[in-house]
Lab assay of single mutants.
Amino acid sequence: SKDTIRINGIDIDVKDLHEEWKRLVEEALKRGDEELAIELLERALKE
């Protein structure tokens, strides 16, 4: 798994994120759902 995830052309540092969150965000991006990916990231970062 990578340490960054690219959303809207912005590389976001996710190395401190739990693997499960990372996977969910990557799944959302694979489906092209950037809005969901951002929402998941925000939730993950609050934890």
Score class of each variant (00 low, 15 high):
residue 39 E to S: 14
residue 12 I to V: 11
residue 17 L to D: 01
residue 12 I to Q: 03
residue 42 E to M: 15
residue 25 V to D: 00
residue 43 R to K: 09
residue 5 I to M: 06
residue 2 K to Q: 14
residue 6 R to D: 02
residue 33 D to R: 05
residue 6 R to E: 04
residue 41 L to T: 03
residue 47 E to Q: 12
residue 5 I to L: 13
residue 28 A to Q: 01
residue 17 L to W: 06
residue 30 K to C: 03
residue 2 K to H: 12
residue 20 E to N: 15
residue 18 H to S: 15
residue 29 L to K: 01
residue 30 K to L: 12
residue 4 T to Q: 06
residue 16 D to T: 10
residue 26 E to H: 15
residue 13 D to V: 10
residue 37 A to F: 02
residue 21 W to D: 06
residue 18 H to R: 13
residue 18 H to W: 07
residue 29 L to H: 01
residue 10 I to M: 12
residue 33 D to W: 06
residue 31 R to H: 10
residue 26 E to V: 15
residue 40 L to E: 00
residue 36 L to K: 10
residue 14 V to C: 03
residue 1 S to W: 10
residue 1 S to T: 13
residue 29 L to E: 00
residue 41 L to K: 00
residue 16 D to C: 13
residue 31 R to V: 09
residue 3 D to H: 09
residue 28 A to I: 03
residue 20 E to D: 11
residue 9 G to I: 03
residue 14 V to G: 03
residue 23 R to W: 06
residue 24 L to H: 04
residue 41 L to A: 04
residue 9 G to Q: 04
residue 9 G to Y: 03
residue 25 V to L: 13
residue 39 E to T: 13
residue 17 L to I: 13
residue 7 I to F: 04
residue 10 I to V: 13
residue 8 N to A: 09
residue 28 A to Y: 06
residue 31 R to Q: 11
residue 12 I to E: 01
residue 39 E to P: 00
residue 6 R to C: 04
residue 16 D to E: 10
residue 1 S to V: 12
residue 35 E to G: 13
residue 46 K to G: 10
residue 43 R to V: 06
residue 36 L to W: 08
residue 20 E to Q: 13
residue 21 W to K: 02
residue 11 D to N: 06
residue 8 N to P: 02
residue 7 I to W: 04
residue 47 E to S: 09
residue 47 E to D: 11
residue 14 V to W: 11
residue 5 I to Q: 02
residue 7 I to T: 01
residue 38 I to C: 12
residue 8 N to I: 03
residue 7 I to C: 04
residue 8 N to C: 08
residue 11 D to Y: 08
residue 5 I to P: 02
residue 37 A to W: 02
residue 29 L to D: 00
residue 36 L to S: 07
residue 39 E to A: 14
residue 44 A to N: 02
residue 34 E to G: 07
residue 42 E to R: 15
residue 39 E to K: 15
residue 31 R to I: 09
residue 36 L to M: 11
residue 33 D to H: 08
residue 4 T to R: 05
residue 33 D to L: 10
residue 12 I to H: 13
residue 47 E to R: 04
residue 24 L to G: 03
residue 12 I to R: 07
residue 24 L to S: 04
residue 3 D to L: 03
residue 17 L to Y: 04
residue 3 D to F: 01
residue 30 K to N: 11
residue 4 T to N: 05
residue 38 I to P: 00
residue 41 L to P: 00
residue 46 K to C: 07
residue 38 I to E: 05
residue 42 E to I: 12
residue 6 R to W: 05
residue 35 E to R: 15
residue 30 K to Y: 14
residue 1 S to Q: 11
residue 23 R to T: 08
residue 12 I to W: 15
residue 17 L to T: 01
residue 33 D to N: 12
residue 33 D to P: 01
residue 11 D to I: 08
residue 44 A to D: 00
residue 21 W to Q: 06
residue 15 K to S: 15
residue 16 D to M: 12
residue 23 R to C: 03
residue 44 A to K: 02
residue 39 E to Q: 14
residue 17 L to Q: 01
residue 17 L to E: 00
residue 13 D to R: 05
residue 18 H to E: 09
residue 25 V to A: 02
residue 21 W to G: 03
residue 23 R to Y: 07
residue 10 I to G: 03
residue 14 V to K: 02
residue 30 K to M: 12
residue 12 I to G: 01
residue 27 E to D: 11
residue 45 L to H: 09
residue 20 E to Y: 15
residue 1 S to H: 10
residue 31 R to N: 10
residue 1 S to N: 14
residue 27 E to N: 07
residue 6 R to M: 10
residue 7 I to S: 01
residue 10 I to R: 12
residue 21 W to P: 02
residue 26 E to G: 08
residue 33 D to E: 09
residue 28 A to W: 04
residue 7 I to Y: 03
residue 4 T to W: 07
residue 3 D to P: 05
residue 15 K to M: 07
residue 27 E to Q: 12
residue 34 E to K: 11
residue 41 L to D: 00
residue 45 L to T: 06
residue 13 D to L: 08
residue 23 R to N: 06
residue 10 I to F: 07
residue 46 K to H: 09
residue 17 L to S: 01
residue 10 I to W: 07
residue 27 E to R: 06
residue 4 T to I: 14
residue 41 L to G: 01
residue 23 R to I: 07
residue 32 G to H: 05
residue 22 K to D: 01
residue 13 D to H: 09
residue 42 E to Y: 15
residue 14 V to H: 02
residue 35 E to F: 13
residue 16 D to A: 11
residue 21 W to A: 06
residue 15 K to D: 05
residue 22 K to L: 15
residue 32 G to C: 04
residue 28 A to G: 00
residue 44 A to C: 03
residue 13 D to F: 09
residue 13 D to M: 09
residue 17 L to F: 06
residue 23 R to V: 07
residue 47 E to T: 09
residue 26 E to L: 15
residue 14 V to Q: 02
residue 45 L to Q: 10
residue 7 I to N: 01
residue 42 E to A: 12
residue 16 D to H: 13
residue 42 E to Q: 13
residue 31 R to K: 10
residue 18 H to G: 13
residue 5 I to Y: 04
residue 46 K to A: 13
residue 3 D to R: 05
residue 35 E to P: 12
residue 13 D to I: 08
residue 12 I to S: 01
residue 21 W to R: 02
residue 28 A to F: 05
residue 40 L to C: 02
residue 4 T to P: 05
residue 14 V to Y: 07
residue 32 G to T: 01
residue 13 D to T: 07
residue 47 E to A: 11
residue 23 R to M: 09
residue 42 E to P: 00
residue 6 R to Q: 09
residue 5 I to G: 02
residue 21 W to H: 04
